[in-house]
Structure formats: C-alpha cells, structure tokens
C-alpha cells in the first residue's frame, strides 16, 4: 500500500473517526477481494476542520450503474459514513480501477 498523509492535526469526534476508519478498511478489503490487484493508494488530507480520505486501486474496476447500491460492502461503507454526517463518492469503470472518496467536514 502506498500512503500519503498531510495536515491531519485536527482531532475528529470519536464516532466520526471510527466511521471513517471503518470505511477505509472496508474499501481496502474491497480492493483485496475484488480488484484483482495487490496494490492500493491511500491518501488522507486534513484542513478546514475536516478530512478527505481516498482509496484508489488500478485493478479491474466495475460498472457502477450495474451494481445494486443497496447491496454489499459499498452499502455498508456508505451507511456508516453518512450516519456521522460524512460523504462518500465512488468512481469506477471496467479495467480502470476504483476510487473511493470519504470526506467529513465539521
């Protein structure tokens, strides 16, 4: 895993921290299980009282519109982040990898 972190001095509320950490580990689990690659990029950027985390892989990807949003890991991931007031964006295409962006602002 390649990781880069910047400007993470702000302490987040405990439930937010927990939700974001869960989401990132779900996203990484997703890479291991489905992306067909053993490489992933994790970036975390803070500032403005918030944080943006991205998990990116260069694996096989998927067609987002073909995946039922109510199912599986993606739903779990989205659910726990939205519950604490965060946002999730997922972008993917066949053979072009997947990007999961999780962000939270105060």
């Amino acid at each position: 895993m390649h990781s880069q972190f910047h400007d993470l001095s702000d302490r987040l509320p405990e439930d937010v921290e927990q939700a974001l950490t869960n989401a990132v580990s779900e996203a990484l689990t997703n890479v291991t299980k489905h992306a067909g690659t053993d490489e992933a990029w994790l970036t975390a950027v803070g500032g403005d009282g918030g944080v943006t985390l991205k998990v990116v892989d260069r694996g096989r990807g998927f067609r987002p519109e073909a995946v039922n949003p109510g199912r599986g890991l993606l739903r779990e991931l989205r659910h726990c982040v939205v519950e604490v007031g965060g946002r999730v964006a997922i972008d993917s295409a066949p053979d072009q990898g997947t990007m999961v962006e999780v962000s939270w602002r105060r």
Partner: peptide, 8 residues
Amino acid sequence: GSGCTVEA
C-alpha cells in the same frame, strides 16, 4: 496524486 492512472 491520489493514485489514479492517467486513464482514470
């Protein structure tokens, strides 16, 4: 910079 390929 987040790790995406130029294609992505």
